[in-house]
Design a binder for these strands. Structure first.
Lengths: 104, 104
DNA sequence: CGTGTAAGGAATTCTGACACG
DNA sequence: CGTGTAAGGAATTCTGACACG
């Protein structure tokens, strides 16, 4: 009874299509991955596969680059968000361990 | 202020990925297209591009085929649905022409 | 009818490198 | 640092056909 498989995060789009969708060159897209700003999966043959979420992320990166933000700064911003999420997860886990009841 | 671009209907998935997602061979997928049960778009180079909606449709077709339903019957069922939708559209248009007020 | 397969070719993507700045 | 490009190779997909049934 779970709803849709969340199409937004399924990694199924090839770099050529992502290039069309974002307007970015394949070179840029690969470079942003090299800088750990985006994380596509790989097919058996080694082809990069992106999700719609990745496409959105890339458009956001493109906007920031236009504003002069460096990849390093974008990366730092990403790391900060990830640390926050980690903290939230920890807190939720703590609360659940202390007061959680419903096991299933 | 429009919501998401409806990822479900964007034709961005190559046949190889569709094959993995549905479990169908590429041969079958192409054959169902030949029988007009599915309608992928094409990239500049001529590669088929499918949407998540197409993937769902293919899984539905696969189920019907397993039950022994022929492609011809599946096609007829599809045509029937399309006629119904057409009729609904007509009615809505008629009602709008007669009583519709908000032009924009 | 529905599907598998081998065949040859074309489009797509990959990596590593050189260039410029 | 960020991006373009030419280079050679490998993975992907395409079509039309033959096969079986």
């Amino acid at each position: 009874m779970d709803n849709e498989p969340s199409y937004k995060d399924k990694k199924v789009i090839s770099i050529g299509v992502v290039s069309e969708l974002t307007g970015l060159t394949e070179r840029k897209i690969r470079y942003y991955e090299e800088k750990n700003l985006i994380f596509p999966k790989r097919s058996k043959g080694g082809y990069r596969k992106y999700s719609f979420g990745d496409v959105e992320r890339l458009m956001d990166i493109a906007d920031q680059r236009e504003e002069g933000v460096t990849t390093k700064e974008i990366k730092q911003e990403l790391s900060k968000k990830e640390r926050k999420e980690q903290k939230q997860k920890m807190i939720r886990g703590q609360l659940n361990a202390q007061f959680g009841i419903q096991k299933k």
